[in-house]
Nucleic acid binder design. Structure first.
Length: 949
RNA sequence: GCCAGAGUGGCGGAAUGGCAGACGCGCUGGAUUCAAAAUCCAGUGCCCGCAAGGGCGUGUGGGUUCAAGUCCCUCCUCUGGUACCA
């Protein structure tokens, strides 16, 4: 009995496509043919195999590709593997087996599973980031980064040889020049704090540290600075943000990236602290209040001299030792700065600490250093901090302001120091309340509601606030604040310093600047500070430079050599491995366990255990030690889409002509979990390659779509622990690959999160069974056409159904609304199942529109309908719009907006005839008697609505 | 906290401001069958009603409109992201 048996027809067609190289893509799109580059985010080949979440995006892109081929496009649709990664390394540590062995096994499983689903990839372009011939070029790109500096004037990455060397550096000789260059490269070394667990002998990721202990084994973890490779992505922050504009990405993802980059515009301002250490002691600073901008003298000669000098010299690029430089987005609140805070890591901490405060400050800094970032950044905890004992002078009103150390100020952002304006910043307010620091309002919020102030009065009234005891010298002016009372208006509370308001308003308590609205004030004071040499406009980014090295084995080795002196000690000079020497392969190791501490007592990566012949090459008589860090997993995925264009090229990473022809990627589909990092890193590399002339487009991913996660049948995230993981192998075995593909698309919108449902798979399988029976005689002994399939012309109604279906499926695919496209095809099937005569030409066309979704059954039916070749390149069926229109349509008739009847009228009836038809309807006529019609709304083709009295 | 997205039958979900619930699952009834499976046909938001028909209905409360799931405001819930970025 020729029933629909996917288990036999699916492998049959996969073999056919393979044998005929149906989806082999030409090197270059032929002249006159439009190209389409459609890319899936390539998977990490985990040991657990493909997950039903993977085929969601893959099926969507496959439909787009198959549709595009049938519409005459030349399609590039490749697949590969992001194969470096921690799980393989952990497996290697446990078993002693080389991670490559395990990785290759997993890739085989993934490949089998992907092929089983009938995706139209050009498998000849298959690659893995762990292939020697692939990471050779990853290393090569790293060397491009290493060879590039960012010219801020031209806003462009340029060769390091073009970096202007200041005369004073040049005069210090060759070594100084090289160090100067190294400081300016996009790939540079820097000390970064790592989580080092001496017990485990390894460096841990932030997620692996809990409460200062290692997640595994609960061993103590210390934070220590380690020489790390960094990539200067911050140089490209502006371009990475601005270029988002031209991309066809969802606004949500663009915003996510933009927020991650976190550009803010404000001002840098220098607060004078004096030269000696520490200078402005309590009581020593008592400058007379003056109006900023007037050249009145204070009674602090040191300060006066500094200010005068600044007026002449202007604002220096680098702050001197005599000032604390702060960054603020609210220079208009300078007059409300009642204290300052510097980060515990700030280099001035020791200098600014008075002898009386020394013990407290040192203890605080020590405690902060031992805490993980995670613990420090817990916003729910109470603010902590300690007074240094020193004061700085507010440059605008010459008031002394106490300098505190607190970990709510981050060393990594801005200048690591802030002016605190508790009246207009929630964090500063909280801190001021905690330590009894004064709150001076400088922005009049005007008439506001209580939701705009912090804390909301209700919050204060419910929790009794107690003023903690503070060091006696902590409060230059003793103004303790009582909780908000119910009587005070929100505005009054702000003006009294009892609440904080972060919005914009009109300035007060700001001497000559009173009465300005926030935006004007910002502009004015920034300009005035610039003139006085006390500040300038500044831009800051939340984005940090990319920590690019890992102390792991299973990653790309850095193609970098550290020069050694005669005694075998590093000279501090580095050089790149020659391009012709690439790739630098991973060395043989006896085991993959962490290397523990190196000879210097610092954490050593596994590659430090490499044999000497690998580790210590000699070039031109000079001895070197190889870099032993490896690159992070992100590296390989930063450029794989370029290699797919020219995967076998052993001269270049990609041929320029091919790159120009295929880029950019027209559609990129993947999970939203990569919305920030992968896409940002990738775009960054691409821009560097663009600046250096290696690629032709500034952006790689023109259109991006994020598929939603597929949950388990119980609505929870799929996981082994929850026991709700669905294995595609099982689904294919029980229902077939076409059913799996169809169901993945039928579940709901591609971008939505949606639960798996076995019953749903059964449903779409039922649909395919019906399609099969529509064409195949399933009662016959042999495979033959259903008797209803005849070589006759379709009836008008059949034709209308066909053309409507083609029209809707076509537009649904173009909008990537696959779920409704499938619904339309189900309607088609339901209609034709009832037809006892089914014109062959109609079924031909239907099979073609079904084929992108369910390619195996479509090929099989296409063959049965008498066609000799694959349908993969058959022209997509066209529709005649005139044939999609019904002759008569049903129009709803409403009275006062409520549906009261329906009338059938000829399509295209004009307003007058619609009204006539509606009024002649018996029920409407009855309801209208005795009523006055105030207004009649007629939407031709849609409805009639009588508004009556 | 903040940002983004989402709340529609028993379930997954459809709906350029114009007939809410397409399509699928499930359920009910029927045909076929000795019987069952499979298949085919019909019905299926809730309430009242024998029916004709009526009322109510897209998280909550308000608003705009002849007309609101859709637009505006308030609040609630869920999901994801993020975490003191001055």
């Amino acid at each position: 009995m020729p029933r629909y048996t996917p288990a036999t027809i699916e492998p049959k067609w996969q073999a056919y496509w393979d044998e005929h190289q149906t989806f082999r893509t030409p090197e270059l799109p032929p002249a006159g043919q439009e190209k389409l580059y459609v890319l899936d985010m390539f998977p990490y080949p985990s040991g657990s195999g493909l997950h039903v979440g993977h085929p969601e995006g893959y099926t969507a892109t496959d439909i787009v590709c198959r549709f595009a081929r049938m519409n005459g496009k030349c399609v590039l649709h490749p697949m590969g593997f992001d194969a470096f990664g921690l799980p393989a390394e952990e497996h290697a540590i446990r078993t002693g087996e080389h991670p490559r062995t395990n990785t290759e096994t997993n890739i085989k499983v993934f490949t089998r599973q992907l092929r089983m689903l009938g995706f139209s990839y050009d498998w000849s372009r298959d690659l893995a980031t762990t292939d020697l011939e692939y990471f050779r070029w990853t290393q090569w790109i790293f060397l491009v980064l290493f060879d590039t500096w960012y010219d801020a004037d031209q806003q462009k990455g340029r060769p390091i040889s073009e970096l202007p060397i200041p005369a004073e550096v040049r005069s210090q000789g060759e070594a100084a020049v090289r160090k100067y260059q190294d400081e300016h490269r996009l790939a540079y070394q820097s000390d970064a704090l790592v989580n080092w667990c001496p017990e485990l002998g390894t460096v841990l990721a932030n997620e692996e540290v809990i409460d200062g202990k290692s997640e595994r084994g609960s061993h103590p973890v210390v934070r220590l600075p380690l020489r790390q490779w960094m990539l200067r992505i911050t140089a490209y922050a502006d371009r990475l943000e601005k270029d988002l504009e031209g991309l066809d990405w969802s606004p949500g993802i663009k915003k996510l990236q933009s927020d991650w980059i976190g550009r803010s515009v404000g001002a840098e301002v220098d607060f004078f602290v004096g030269q000696s250490s520490p200078t402005l002691r309590v009581g020593q600073a008592s400058p007379a209040k003056v109006e900023f901008g007037k050249s009145a003298e204070t009674n602090n000669p040191e300060f006066d001299a500094w200010k005068a000098a600044r007026a002449k010299s202007g604002f220096p690029k680098k702050p001197g030792e005599d000032v604390l430089r702060i960054y603020t987005t609210r220079p208009d609140t300078l007059f409300g700065a009642t204290y300052m805070v510097i980060a515990p890591e700030h280099p001035f901490v020791a200098r600014l600490t008075t002898p009386e405060q020394k013990t407290a400050v040192e203890a605080y800094v020590q405690a902060a250093a031992s805490k993980s970032d995670r613990d420090r950044q817990d916003v729910n905890k109470k603010k902590t901090g300690v007074f240094t004992g020193s004061y700085a002078i507010n440059p605008v009103n010459h008031e002394p302001v106490p300098v505190w150390v607190a970990d709510y100020v981050l060393w990594g952002y801005g200048t690591g120091a802030i002016m605190a304006v508790p009246a207009h910043d929630e964090r500063d307010f909280e801190f001021a309340q905690q330590f009894g620091l004064p709150v001076v309002a400088v922005v009049d919020p005007g008439d506001i509601s209580e939701v705009e102030v912090y804390p909301k009065p209700s919050q204060v009234l419910s929790t009794q606030y107690s003023v903690p005891s503070t060091p006696e010298n902590a409060t230059p002016t003793t103004t303790h604040h009582s909780p908000l009372t119910t009587h005070a208006s929100p505005r009054q509370s702000v003006l009294n310093g009892q609440a904080c308001f972060v919005g914009e308003g009109v300035s007060i308590n700001s001497n000559g600047y009173n009465g300005l609205v926030t935006s004007d004030f910002k502009r004015r004071i920034t300009a005035d500070l610039t003139t006085a040499g006390l500040g300038r406009e500044a831009v800051n980014y939340k984005l940090r430079d990319w920590l690019f090295s890992r102390q792991r084995f299973w990653g790309e080795p850095f193609p970098i050599l550290h020069e050694l002196d005669a005694a075998g000690n590093p000279t501090g000079l580095i050089r790149a491995v020659d391009e012709q020497e690439l790739p630098v392969d991973l060395p043989h190791l006896d085991d993959y366990k962490p290397a523990g501490a190196g000879p210097d007592g610092l954490p050593a990566p596994p590659l430090a255990k490499a044999p000497a012949e690998w580790l210590y090459p000699t070039i031109d008589g000079k001895k070197y030690r190889r870099e032993t860090n490896t690159m992070p997993q992100w590296a390989g995925s930063c450029w794989y889409f370029l290699r797919f264009i020219d995967p076998k090229n052993n001269q270049r990473f990609v041929d320029p002509a091919k790159e120009r022809a295929w880029m950019p990627i027209d559609l990129y589909v993947g999970g939203a979990e990569h919305a920030v990092l992968h896409l940002l890193y990738s775009r960054f590399w691409h821009k560097v390659l663009f600046d250096r002339g290696h690629v032709s487009k500034p952006e790689p991913f023109q259109k991006l779509v994020n598929q939603g996660m597929i949950l388990g049948e119980n609505g929870e995230k799929m996981s082994k622990a929850r026991g709700n993981v669905v294995n595609p192998d099982d689904v294919v075995r029980d229902y077939g690959a076409d059913s799996l593909r169809l169901f993945e698309m039928f579940m709901g919108p591609l971008e939505a999160v949606k639960p798996w449902s076995t019953a749903g798979v059964v449903g779409v399988r039922g649909f395919l069974d019906r399609v099969w029976r529509l064409i195949v005689d399933d009662k016959a002994e042999a495979l033959k056409l259903n008797e209803s399939v005849q070589n006759v012309a379709p009836t008008d109604e059949q034709n209308r159904t066909l053309h409507k279906t083609i029209k809707q499926v076509t537009s649904d695919i173009q909008r990537m609304e696959f779920n409704t496209a499938i619904a339309r095809m189900m309607e088609f099937t339901n209609f034709f199942t009832k037809e006892t005569v089914r014109p062959r030409e109609v079924l031909d066309k239907f099979v073609l529109i079904l084929s992108p979704f369910a390619p195996h059954i479509a090929e099989e039916l296409w063959q049965l309908l008498g066609h000799k070749q694959t349908l993969a390149y058959e022209p997509w069926p066209t529709y005649d719009d005139a044939l999609t229109k019904d002759a008569e349509i049903e129009i709803p008739v409403q009275i006062l907006g409520k549906l009261r009847s329906k009338v059938v009228v000829p399509a295209g009836s004009d307003q007058a005839s619609l009204i006539a038809a509606a009024r002649s309807d018996a029920r409407i006529a009855e309801l209208l008697t005795g009523k006055e019609i105030v207004k009649t709304i007629v939407v031709p083709g849609k409805l009639v609505n009588f508004v009556v009295k």
